[in-house]
């Protein structure tokens, strides 16, 4: 984990010391530690001279800018119609079984968080899921188990 202050300053250098830097900063923090905590948001507010409520309000607008702790690997299963028809329910149930958590929860070892999300732009290859930035398409029960196993070992 990088120091949040450094991270913020780095982004400010690229994007400027104004509000247009906010999204890149928040994205970088989330990429680094998978969520934004209170201190992070205070740091950001301080650096850009905006209110903490504003930072929080902006972050909570965006699904990917989590303000609650997440696991190392955030799994997002597409629930929208094409994937729904292609069998996302089975995929989701499999994940719940394998990880022994429910929607929105994180495994006790803080490795995985299981979320449902809206269409991810792979509707012709549903069901699909994202694990952090990586996309997995045309999922089957077996494929999902393999993928999770791989991540377990990482």
């Amino acid at each position: 984990m990088t120091d949040v202050k450094e991270l913020i300053q780095g982004k400010i250098k690229t994007f400027g010391n104004n509000r247009t830097a906010l999204m890149p900063i928040l994205q970088a923090i989330v990429e680094d530690k998978n969520h934004l905590d209170e201190e992070d948001m205070i740091e950001v507010a301080d650096a850009l001279d905006i209110s903490t409520a504003d930072v929080y309000g902006t972050a909570t607008f965006y699904t990917f800018l989590d303000t609650i702790p997440r696991g190392k690997y955030v799994i997002r299963v597409c629930k929208t119609i094409s994937c729904h028809m292609a069998g996302k329910d089975e995929i989701f149930d499999t994940l719940k079984d394998v990880l022994k958590i429910k929607e929105g929860e994180t495994t006790p070892d803080k490795k995985f968080t299981l979320l449902i999300a809206n269409c991810m732009g792979w509707c012709h290859k549903g069901p699909v899921m994202l694990v952090n930035d990586d996309i997995y398409t045309e999922l089957t029960k077996e494929k999902v188990i393999d993928i999770i196993n791989e991540y377990q070992e990482k």
Binding site: G121, C123, H124
Partner: peptide
């Protein structure tokens, strides 16, 4: 930003 369900051509 291609977010419309069922659209994946921009990607």
């Amino acid at each position: 930003d291609e977010g419309e369900p069922g659209t994946f051509k921009d990607r």
